[in-house]
């Protein structure tokens, strides 16, 4: 029951992400557009390029969708609305999200095209760097909650949200989440003007629909993760918990999507050096500072 409800909510969430994304691009609210686009894709031919690695080509979009869905299973939307409250929830989210990388590598290799392949390898470099910025800020979050349970992380923020308790961690995690979801300006792996779509370039029809859906779900899942880890989850005054969750998740989604059209794409060299030379030292500092805070105000 809970599972069905959460799947439904994710579907609605994915739809809203698509609407918001279109809005950030052209400033219009096109409420029907994602649905017509989806139906149109289903009706269109789904081409298999010449000499593909068929297994990878077929599996990649599905794996992307599944890993995004799996990450969502441990995120609480209201106190009871969670598919499974794993004792290792925080670690589990990371584990599920790393498979986004595997999916994109498959999508890069499978269709047998140069653009796709370069896109796939680009994402390898990007994710290995930014996975660090996912894991390290999350460590600090878990330190404060003294638990890997996502519900406990939410309740640990009852007095003060983590965005205020560890703002540095929030910024790092937010950037890393955008890089993980290859949202612009971090969309080096699907860059239209460099790789003509990169890993997406060879997909069409149903497979493309699944790929895009997977990405939308990934965005909404990451937004929900940010809300759970840093914005106090369902907590908030006056409104019921579900409303707070929804408002916060949509706000974070909009924030993640707004940066894209307003900024030029990051250079690949900058992307990597930013992470390794600036991001990771800052993340270590964040862990250190949060450690001190936890000791000083237990």
């Amino acid at each position: 029951m809970t599972t069905a409800l959460i799947l439904l909510l994710l579907a609605v969430g994915a739809y809203l992400v698509a609407v918001i994304e279109a809005w950030t691009m052209n400033g219009r609210w096109q409420l029907a557009a994602p649905i017509t686009a989806g139906i149109a894709l289903l009706g269109r031919e789904s081409i298999v390029p010449r000499k593909p690695d068929r297994v990878f080509f077929e599996v990649a979009p599905v794996l992307l969708l599944i890993s995004a869905l799996l990450a969502a299973t441990v995120l609480p939307l209201t106190p009871g609305l969670i598919i499974t409250d794993l004792a290792t929830g925080v670690l589990f989210i990371n584990a599920a999200l790393v498979y986004v990388l595997v999916a994109l590598l498959m999508a890069g290799w499978g269709p047998n095209g140069a653009y796709a392949m370069i896109g796939g390898w680009r994402f390898l470099g990007q994710l290995i760097a930014y996975a660090m910025l996912i894991v390290m800020p999350v460590t600090a979050v878990a330190m404060r909650a003294e638990s890997l349970l996502t519900t406990q992380i939410v309740t640990s923020q009852a007095d003060l949200w983590n965005i205020l308790y560890q703002p540095l961690g929030f910024v790092l995690f937010f950037v890393a989440a955008m890089a993980l979801a290859f949202l612009p300006p971090f969309d080096l792996t699907t860059a239209t003007s460099e790789l003509a779509g990169g890993v997406e370039a060879e997909y069409s029809g149903v497979r493309l629909a699944v790929f895009r859906l997977g990405r939308l779900v990934l965005v909404i899942t990451l937004a929900a993760t940010i809300v759970v880890f840093y914005l106090g989850g369902w907590q908030g005054p006056w409104l019921p918990p579900w409303a707070w969750s929804a408002i916060k998740i949509l706000a974070v989604t909009a924030l993640m999507l707004l940066a894209g059209p307003a900024l030029p794409r990051v250079r690949e060299a900058d992307l990597l050096s930013l992470c390794w030379k600036l991001g990771i030292p800052l993340a270590l500092l964040n862990i250190f500072v949060v450690g001190l805070q936890v000791l000083v105000w237990p």
Binding site: L86, T88, L91, F92, N94, A95, V98, Y99, L101, V102, L105, L124, L127, I128, A131
Partner: peptide, 12 residues
């Protein structure tokens, strides 16, 4: 979970 997470990056 740790194994599943670590191996994904390692094998990539």
């Amino acid at each position: 979970v740790l194994q599943i997470m670590m191996m994904a990056t390692e094998m990539s």
